[in-house]
Amino acid sequence: MQAVSTTAVRSAATQEAVWVRWLLLTGALLFLGFFLVLPLVSIFAEALRKGWALYWEALKEPDALSALQLTLTVTLISVPINLVFGVAAAWAIAKFDFKGKSLLITLIDLPFSVSPVVAGLIYVLIFGAQGWLGPWLQAHDIKIIFAVPGIVLATMFVTFPFIARELIPLMEAQGTEEEQAAMVLGASGWQTFWKITLPNIKWGLLYGVILCNARAMGEFGAVSVVSGHIRGMTNTTPLHVEILYNEYNFVASFACASILALLALVTLVAKTWVEWQTERQMAAERAAVYES
């Protein structure tokens, strides 16, 4: 209630003229509507243009189902692996001092700065038939490029920074005193991690996982290079959408796109919920401090 009253009290002296405010607000909303809301609505409109029956038909089609299944499989493998390595990297960077620390931070950011296509090509160069390990892999009948392992690798590469980047500032802000206190009290490194570090970063971690998950499901560029586009085999949903679109099968293409859009919306809701939870927790802590 207090927050409401303070905004109401804010005087005209500190505000812009009414018409300026309206102009800016309208501009921002128009821009958002044109570039975000309109495309999103059009996905669903296009998908349902020929009715629910066709929409449903397009989703039930075996290639679409297998693409969705592959997308979920890849996500389910790459997100947990990134979770473990992201936490490990953030822990190492935030809690310890060592040589080459800044180099490691730069390396973690690398996937953000490299084009996804280049990321895909790296794996083709290493594991492809003409690549460094290609002949050896062929001799042992291991398929990485144009197969699921390649797609997982490419997805992991592209989504690696999300969790680590989310955690590093949080862990640095929290410092190492609580961990030191736990250690003096006799806790082992493992106990300290599970009982002190992890509970302190859980909301930040969940936020990172959600972002990582969203990107893993939607990744196109890097996956496109390593997948080989084999229908029903190595096609993820984003790739499947492109194939259908190129075949002028608009309804099916938009139907599959709508699934990705829905997943994105669910992610957004989850992200908002986590943010709300974190804020609530912080507000409760603050209120408690004022009370005492």
């Binding site: 030191q180 206190a181 736990a182 006799g186 806790a187 082992s188 302190n200």
Partner: peptide, 28 residues
């Protein structure tokens, strides 16, 4: 540190923020 059997009180206390007072004291 773990085996030195020392008690250390940090300047900013370093209490475990996600634990109750009881759990903080019980931790050791």
């Amino acid at each position: 540190v773990r085996e030195r059997q020392v008690g250390f009180v940090f300047q900013h206390y370093a209490l475990f923020r996600h634990m109750t007072v009881f759990e903080n004291v019980a931790f050791g």
